Amino acid sequence: MRVVPRRSRNRRRDEATAPSPSPSVPPGAPESAEPAPGGSPSDPPPAQGANTPPAKSEIGAPADPAGTKTGGPPEAETGKPADSADAQAREDADATTRATEEFPAVTPRVPVPASPAETEAARRRARSAERRRATAEVKRSRAGLRRNRPHRTPPTPARAAEQHRSAMLVMVLTLGLLIAAVAVTGALIASSMRTQPVTLAAPLHVYPVTQTSPGQCPAGTQGISGQSATGPTCYRMAQGIAIREVADLRVQRSRVQPGGYDVALTLRPSDRKAFADLTRATVGRDLAFVVRNRIITLPRVDMAILDGKVVVTGPPDRASANRLVRELKGR
């Protein structure tokens, strides 16, 4: 019967300090020629049963941890059978094999220089990976913006009607402002066209009338013959002014006679002072408007005209007023 002792934590240390055991010879087996530890090859092994007591194996007896006993067979020194040494050797060999399998020897790899084609392919792969990362980042940012964007709920019918009314009001106001702007612009254009200077075909002479007598004017007298309600009349005149261009000359509704028409004549600033002096001196008398030595009209001066705006009243209809305008222009 053989008993294999249990492995202890200090077994490797004990084995390192203990002498190498040799296989023991069981009783009745032939003796081997191997020398015992500490002896010489020429020394014969001790005889069984002479003076050496036979080796004993105690069950459960602890082995000498120090391994200081010398002499005698290894079984007597260590208290272990010979087969336990063989098992220990096999276990050590198995442990070495497992360690080799678990941690194989690493052979250092010698770096091989890459070819230009491989280098360019690696660069292309790196650029492609960078573009994919950038695209993924852009997609993530857009998705985050969409998630953070407030959700728009559809307006209620009342809200939609209010918005429609507001839009219509804004459109109407805009259209009104546009129409007003067009009207103001048109008025300004028309006013500027009306205020453009009117060049007369023949000079318009304005004379204060000093005396009237029936019939034709005698030769050599300062007067012009004209037609009045009583027949031919001679109009004697004083020194007057000549107008060759006016600021405005047009027909307008009469302010005195309902349904009648007036002729409005606006003088230029250069002629206003002379005309103001002339009318100031002839208040309550007539002024003769003469074109080509022919009396066109004889209006009475009610008050001095200082602003150069002359209104000739009397034409009964628009046709007569238009004819008067043409005669004043010398056409």
Score class of each variant (00 low, 15 high):
Ser84Gln: 09
Pro41Met: 06
Pro74His: 06
Pro116Leu: 02
Thr195Ser: 13
Arg127Cys: 05
Ala181Met: 09
Ala33Thr: 08
Asp83Gln: 03
Asn148Leu: 10
Pro157Arg: 07
Leu249Ser: 04
Ala114Asp: 09
Ile296Asp: 04
Met193Thr: 14
Thr210Ala: 14
Ala264Leu: 07
Ala93Cys: 01
Val246Pro: 03
Pro44Asp: 10
Pro113Trp: 02
Ala87Gly: 11
Thr135Cys: 02
Ser128Pro: 00
Leu204Trp: 06
Val256Pro: 00
Thr52Asp: 14
Gly284Pro: 06
Asp86Ser: 05
Ser228Tyr: 08
Asn293Gly: 12
Ser270Ile: 07
Ala187Trp: 09
Ala264Ser: 13
Phe103Glu: 11
Val251Ser: 01
Asn293Phe: 05
Ala238Pro: 01
Ser213Leu: 10
Val172Pro: 04
Lys56Leu: 08
Gly176Ile: 12
Arg255Thr: 12
Val110His: 14
Arg13Ala: 15
Asn322Ala: 09
Ala16Lys: 13
Ser22Asp: 15
Glu91Leu: 12
Glu58Gln: 12
Gly71Cys: 01
Ala276Glu: 12
Glu162Ser: 10
Thr297Ile: 08
Ser320Asn: 03
Pro232Ser: 02
Arg140His: 15
Thr153Cys: 01
Pro23Asn: 05
Ser254Ile: 05
Ala76Pro: 00
Asp86His: 10
Val246Tyr: 02
Glu327Ala: 15
Asp86Trp: 11
Thr210Trp: 00
Ala99Thr: 06
Leu188Pro: 00
Pro19Asn: 05
Arg255Ile: 08
Asp64Ile: 04
Ser254His: 06
Thr78Ile: 01
Ala274Gly: 03
Gly226Met: 09
Gly259Phe: 06
Glu58Ile: 13
Val310Asp: 00
Met171Cys: 12
Gln88Arg: 15
Ile243Ala: 04
Gln239Ala: 13
Thr233Ala: 14
Arg300Ala: 01
Glu58Leu: 09
Ser57Thr: 11
Thr174Gly: 15
Leu249Cys: 01
Ala61Glu: 14
Ala134Lys: 09
Gly49Cys: 05
Thr17Trp: 14
Gln196Ser: 12
Ala183His: 04
Val206Arg: 02
Asp92Lys: 11
Arg133Gly: 14
Tyr261Cys: 04
Ala33Met: 08
Ala129Gly: 13
Gly186Cys: 03
Ala134Pro: 01
Pro316Asp: 11
Gly28Pro: 03
Gln48Trp: 13
Pro113Gln: 10
Arg194Val: 07
Val4Pro: 00
Thr313Asn: 09
Val311Ser: 09
Gly176His: 07
Gly223Leu: 13
Tyr261Thr: 02
Lys139Thr: 10
Val263Met: 02
Val25Leu: 03
Leu328Ala: 00
Ala18Met: 13
Gly72Ile: 03
Ala281Cys: 00
Asp271Glu: 13
Thr78His: 03
Lys329Val: 03
Ala281Leu: 09
Asn148Arg: 11
Ala105Val: 08
Gln252Ala: 10
Pro218Lys: 06
Arg9Pro: 08
Glu31Gln: 08
Arg2Met: 12
Ala190Cys: 03
Glu130Ala: 15
Pro53Ala: 06
Asp86Lys: 06
Ala136Phe: 02
Arg268Gln: 12
Gln222Cys: 04
Ser20Val: 12
Thr70His: 05
Glu15Asn: 15
Ile305Asn: 05
Ala50Ile: 02
Pro44Arg: 06
Thr174Cys: 11
Ala129Met: 04
Asp86Tyr: 01
Val209Glu: 01
